[in-house]
């Protein structure tokens, strides 16, 4: 049943993706409205799928790659819907939703079997740590999309090419402000994610920090975002530099999320387990 719900979700997200793309190409307002409604419906199905999986498996569905990617996409769509509801950003959907769609597709290629939870992961800290981290990742993914939009728009204005792309993207300052907003939400979440992870590590392995690759790379990611956060507050770094930094930060984040699990081995990767 949860697999079926998942598949329906993927299909609905696909329809919504098409809607957002149609909107950005034709600028038809109704396309965007329909896409948002469809997306909300998809989000409902996705929520049901995650809950069903939790119920069937008896443990939070945050353990293997399929789960993590699916939850990440869920958090992205959720953040996006919240974001669009609070402060509407033109054309954002056409960047974020295809991205979420790719993550869902990647997730659907992973094994969807629910395996019994390894004893070491049986802890209340599993959902706390994983959910916080994945939400931080989702918010940074949003920031990444906004940074890409900023760089695109910045380039148009700098090069004085005021054509189709220029018309479709929001103003620079709006994009920059939204980037900052994502950072002020994402950075505390990331910090909290690392702190909860550390507490859990102490309970499970007996030490707060053991320099396994996941931990190390999380710290590197944290430092990059910390630098960006600091520079913004003190020197007033903004615009292009801030956007580039956001993209670099996200690239490192992706490596921490995927690369470390798939390429490097350590205490965090129970074979192909966690993340």
């Amino acid at each position: 049943m949860h697999k079926f719900l998942f598949q329906i979700t993927v299909f609905i997200y696909f329809v919504s993706t098409v809607g957002f793309l149609v909107h950005i190409i034709t600028l038809r307002k109704d396309a965007e409205r329909i896409a948002t409604v469809v997306l909300s419906v998809g989000f409902g199905f996705h929520t049901a799928a995650v809950l069903m999986r939790w119920f069937v498996g008896g443990h939070p569905p945050l353990v293997n790659l399929h789960d993590s990617l699916s939850f990440l996409a869920w958090a992205m769509v959720g953040s996006f819907l919240l974001f669009q509801w609070r402060c509407k950003l033109k054309s954002l959907g056409a960047f974020v939703i295809p991205f979420a769609m790719i993550i869902m597709t990647a997730s659907s290629f992973q094994s969807k079997e629910i395996l019994p939870l390894p004893p070491v992961l049986k802890s209340i800290w599993l959902p706390i740590h994983a959910i916080i981290c994945l939400f931080a990742d989702a918010v940074f993914a949003l920031a990444f999309c906004i940074a890409i939009m900023y760089l695109l728009q910045e380039r148009q204005i700098k090069k004085k090419r005021l054509g189709a792309v220029f018309q479709r993207l929001p103003s620079l300052e709006t994009l920059d402000a939204m980037n900052e907003r994502c950072l002020t939400v994402g950075f505390p979440l990331l910090t909290l994610g690392i702190v909860t992870g550390s507490i859990w590590a102490e309970k499970a392995w007996g030490s707060y920090w053991s320099w396994d690759p996941k931990e190390t790379w999380s710290l590197i990611t944290w430092f990059i975002y910390a630098a960006l956060f600091h520079q913004r507050l003190t020197v007033g770094w903004r615009g292009r530099k801030a956007a580039i930094m956001t993209i670099i930060g996200f690239a490192v984040l992706v490596f921490t999320f995927l690369g470390v699990s798939l390429l490097l081995s350590g205490a965090h990767s129970y074979a192909t387990w966690l993340k």
């Binding site: 728009q153 204005i157 005021l162 620079l172 709006t174």
Partner: peptide, 8 residues
């Protein structure tokens, strides 16, 4: 109009 695209 351009200023609006820069500053919103």
């Amino acid at each position: 109009e351009l200023a609006k695209k820069i500053f919103g």
